[in-house]
Write a protein that binds this DNA or RNA. Structure first.
Length: 936
RNA sequence: GGGCGCAUAACUCAGCGGUAGAGUGCGUCCUUCACACGGACGAAGUCGCAGGUUCAAUCCCUGCUGCGCCCACCA
């Protein structure tokens, strides 16, 4: 077809088809098309409204899209439920930053105006990620898209809160919590990330003993701490009860150097490790989790020394008003001045940081809302144990179980404005809390007072997302959608949110719907750079999927990834992170979505780390080009075909029987791969079929038929090619939706097919025809051709130089196949006329060399083309290799234990192999004899 | 302190109780009428180390080393 160029250009093709699919309504669930069909549902993990597409999205979305497209083609009513998460802290931080540029704060604006501002921002730039997911080809049912702060969704959130409150599973309590001083909100335990191996110092200072027994020589007690400033909140110093060094101090009191407070010495075997530090621990119950517990054990006072912004409050005495790390310096300075400093040692420690703001988390005593988790966790554990939910890969089951069996109550309130405000009303008169489904409550349910103030806090973002699988379908209303699409089939997501999201959805689904939210949890790994490092903005090793799709210069990419670094430095960093880019010149070319998707699919989903290699994407771009050109070639022969949709009836030609057999195997492997969440296996099976079997063998072998074959042979081959191409494009469609649609539209198809390949049926084994006999026979043919080609290549004989070839085999069936297909051998191996086919014999034509390929001996007349010395070397090398193999096999078969214990099929196989090796060995030796004649 | 994972060809990764695989890269040859984003042919691995189980171990078990991740309140 002249109008087609010789290279596939994805950027010209891809956008066109996405629009076509939208117009056709291909992605819609619950249409007439799928009426009465079984459902297949994947709830899409809703990306953050602040998000823009990163590799993790690209990976997950591609996997989900493959799954959903596959099931849709199989005829299921396939629903991929999309949506967006309001992402509490992240969004608030983004908008506050914008305000800051205008010189405003949210407090100046007030809550209502600020919320309005966030909504405006959301309308403008919050939907970007949905657009980007469409570039990836995601076939979600966009019209059903939900936002976690939609009115209906918010109603579900409130219903959930109220019910759990009524059931006693949500409560208020005053506890030591994780406080983020930057965003000034409490965080759940999960939102605190522990930075390990931080270089810190263990600082020692002395408390003076009141009423010291000077005779005993103990007038002070030295404590060791990593946080000297918290001594302002110390209400005890603990020593181990069995520590002989401090026995004389038991029951004594210490003088606080800065405050008019006496600090008792207590004994505590839980808190104190005698071997660590000085063996004496200062106890700050209000700002340390261990100390808090110790305080509870000993009835110690809890003194909060910090304001919510992390500065010292009035309890800090002379240090009041100082930011906590400035306070640390000041405290140390004063201690030194007072002569109480006792030195410091470098110390490796851990630092808790806020997941969102990265600021160091301050433990603070605070009244918050909590969710009781243990009663909810039990059914969630059961559901996985009894198989109602399957976790794939299985290795995650342990992690899931560990977390749920050791689960702590969840702090669900946040001191933010952006989110679902807690539906609780505090009575100003009796302090009773009224929780309600209504926005406005007139009177306190306890005392009737009308002086009610709504709780200002909002709920943790994850509180709303845990309802995703049913709140998106209309819960708490009993909608038809809820009845039809709950529970979902598969939940596909990254393993990093097992706790945040997956486990909680399971708990909520079981609690409110009485059924699991999905039947399988498919967990993929994290995309890392080519050297295995986590992608992070700090490292400048992030890859934008869109740069791989549309192409980009490295310079522009690193400017994006590391905007503050000098260009040369950023480039060096980047190239180090992606070694395969060294040979890529100035940047990525436009690999296209299909190439990126196929690449992502080629990594095993069970790998924890997926080290994305740009070179591999380039490889799959070439695959796209291959598909395109193979189709272009095929069209010249098949454009007038009228495929029936069924494989040709009883084909006679070996290559046709064989191709249909391989097609069947490839399609089976693809379906199995997709169903078992091994997209890598599925994709590779189709890749290998298309490139090796269809292009490299079938198409090449078909050429002589199309050139001078019989009319029947041509017709049968055309029909086989047309059918196989149509089928394999359908099989590839879930992985590579765009190119398959483009080409499928160009080729002849059976009458009555749908308007889009996305709605055509996914192939089954019956679209080909398994034929073990054809597979076996084909091997003789390919062996003969490869054998002849090898001789040619090894002697550097140009293809244009035709060579005489004789093929010998002891197997009459093989000889038959070789004779029947001698025209093909002639064409592919460039032989001088049809090769002679014969039985093996001791006689050899003068000037011939021999190559053994499987069961076929290939004799090639080399006279005039060959350097005898070279040939001798080649044969000797080969003999050496075979001899080694023979040796191994003989030893094995000589082992009586092996013969006695090995399974019969293994034994038979071994014997056959030895026989074959011996024969090869003999032939090669005979070949060596012939070398002498070559020069004559 | 617990738990999980990884270690296989130069690179990125599959795999498996029965003589090691893919893609990329590398070497040689070929512009043969789909594709040089191609074709043919080829080279390349002590399957991390040390033990054990087995007729047989890269695969199973134990220990070790290196790397990564998760959970956990050691000042």
């Amino acid at each position: 077809m002249e109008e087609l160029s010789t290279a596939y250009e994805p950027t010209q093709v891809e956008p066109r088809w996405y629009k076509y699919w939208l117009d056709l309504g291909v992605f819609k669930a619950g249409t007439e098309r799928s009426a009465g069909k079984p459902t297949y549902v994947i709830p899409m993990p809703p990306p953050n409204v602040t998000g823009s597409l990163h590799m993790g999205h690209a990976l997950g979305s591609t996997f989900q899209d493959v799954l959903i497209r596959h099931k849709r083609m199989q005829g299921y009513d396939a629903l991929w439920q999309p949506g967006i998460d309001h992402a509490g802290i992240s969004t608030q931080v983004v908008v506050e930053r914008l305000l800051k540029r205008e010189g405003k704060t949210r407090h100046e604006l007030g809550r209502e105006a600020f919320m309005k501002r966030v909504w405006e921002w959301k309308e403008q730039s919050g939907g970007r990620i949905s657009q980007q997911l469409q570039i990836i080809g995601c076939s979600a049912d966009w019209e059903r898209s939900r936002f976690t702060m939609d009115a209906e969704y918010s109603e579900a959130v409130r219903e959930c809160f109220v019910r759990l409150y009524e059931e006693g599973l949500i409560y208020r309590a005053t506890r030591l919590v994780n406080w983020d001083v930057e965003s000034q909100t409490v965080l759940s335990d999960l939102e605190v990330e522990i930075e390990e191996n931080v270089q810190g110092e263990l600082y020692e200072f002395a408390y003076q003993v009141i009423d010291a027994d000077a005779a005993a020589g103990a007038t002070e007690l030295v404590v060791a701490t990593t946080r000297p400033e918290t001594m302002l909140g110390d209400t005890a110093v603990a020593v181990h009860p069995d520590d002989p060094r401090y026995t004389h101090l038991h029951g004594k009191k210490l003088k606080h150097p800065f405050l008019s407070r006496e600090v008792p010495v207590i004994t505590d075997a839980v808190l104190v490790d005698m071997a660590f530090g000085t063996g004496a621990v200062k106890v700050t119950p209000a700002h340390d989790f261990n100390d808090f517990a110790t305080g509870k054990r000993h009835g110690l006072e809890e003194i909060n020394i910090f304001n919510l912004d992390g500065t010292m409050n009035a309890q800090g005495g002379e240090f009041a008003g100082l930011e906590r790390f400035k306070a640390r310096k000041a405290v140390k300075k004063r201690l030194a001045e007072l002569g109480l400093e006792r030195g410091s040692k470098p110390h490796k420690m851990t630092l808790p940081r806020s997941q969102r703001t990265a600021s160091i988390v301050e433990p603070m005593i605070s009244t918050q809302w909590f969710m009781k988790m243990a009663p909810l966790a039990e059914p969630a554990l059961q559901a996985v144990r009894d198989g109602r939910i399957q976790i794939v890969p299985e290795e995650w089951v342990k992690t899931y179980e560990y977390w749920l069996t050791n689960i702590q109550d969840w702090c669900i309130s946040r001191q933010l404005w952006w989110g679902h405000q807690i539906p609780a009303f505090h009575c100003q008169d009796c302090a009773h809390v009224t929780v309600s489904r209504q926005d406005k409550v007139d009177a306190c349910e306890k005392c009737g007072s009308q002086k009610l103030v709504r709780d200002p806090d909002v709920l943790d973002t994850w509180f709303s997302s845990q309802l995703w699988p049913f709140a998106t379908l209309g819960w708490p209303k009993k909608t038809p959608e809820l009845a039809r699409y709950y529970p979902a089939s598969d939940m596909e997501t990254g393993y990093d949110i097992i706790f945040f999201w997956v486990a909680r959805m399971i708990m909520m689904g079981l609690h409110f719907m009485g059924d699991v939210p999905f039947k399988r949890v498919l967990l993929h790994g994290m995309v890392v750079d080519e050297t295995g490092d986590k992608m992070s903005k700090v490292k400048g090793n992030t890859l934008d999927p869109l740069d791989l799709i549309h192409g980009a210069a490295f310079e522009d990419m690193v400017k994006k990834a590391l905007p503050d670094a000098p260009l040369a430095e950023a480039l060096t960093k980047f190239k180090k992170s992606y070694p395969s880019t060294a040979q890529m010149g100035k940047g990525f070319s436009a690999y296209g979505t299909d190439a990126l998707r196929m690449t992502l699919c080629s990594y095993s989903p069970q790998a924890k780390r997926i080290a994305l290699s740009p070179a591999r994407v380039d490889g799959y771009r070439k695959f796209c080009n291959k598909i395109y050109n193979a189709t272009r070639f095929s069209l010249t022969y098949i454009k007038d075909e009228k495929p029936t949709g069924k494989p040709p009836e009883s084909p006679k030609l070996l290559i046709n029987r064989w191709l249909l057999s391989r097609l069947s195997a490839a399609v089976t492997a693809s379906t199995a791969g997709i169903e078992e969440y091994r997209l890598d296996d599925g994709g590779k099976a189709l890749y290998a079929f298309f490139w090796d079997e269809l292009c490299n063998w079938f198409v090449e072998l078909s050429k002589p038929i199309f050139i001078d074959g019989s009319a029947e042979a041509q017709a049968e081959t055309r029909a086989t090619l047309a059918h196989s191409l149509e089928v394999v494009l359908r099989a590839l469609h879930p992985y590579m939706p765009f190119i398959t649609e483009e080409l499928w539209q160009l080729i002849p198809k059976p009458v009555g097919v749908p308007a889009s390949i996305a709605l055509a049926s996914y192939p089954t084994a019956a679209d080909g025809r398994p034929d073990a006999e054809a597979d076996r026979q084909m091997k003789w043919l390919t062996d003969a051709i490869s054998g002849a080609r090898a001789v040619r290549a090894e002697h550097g004989i140009a293809f244009a130089n035709r060579l005489s070839v004789e093929l010998r085999s002891a197997d009459p069936a093989a000889r038959q196949v070789l004779s029947d297909n001698s025209r093909m051998i002639q064409f592919l191996a460039s032989t001088d006329g049809a090769p002679v086919v014969a039985e093996p014999s001791a006689s050899r034509p003068r000037g011939s060399t021999l190559n053994v390929a499987g069961d076929v001996e290939v004799l090639v007349m080399l006279k005039g083309h060959i350097d005898p010395a070279k040939e001798k070397e080649r044969l000797e090398q080969r003999i050496k290799r075979v001899a080694k193999d023979v040796d191994v096999m003989e030893k094995r078969l000589a082992n009586q234990n092996f013969v006695a214990n090995a399974p019969p099929e293994v034994l038979t196989e071994a014997r056959a192999q030895l026989e074959s090796l011996k024969q090869q060995n003999q032939r090669l030796h005979e070949g060596l004899e012939l070398v002498k004649e070559l020069s004559e």
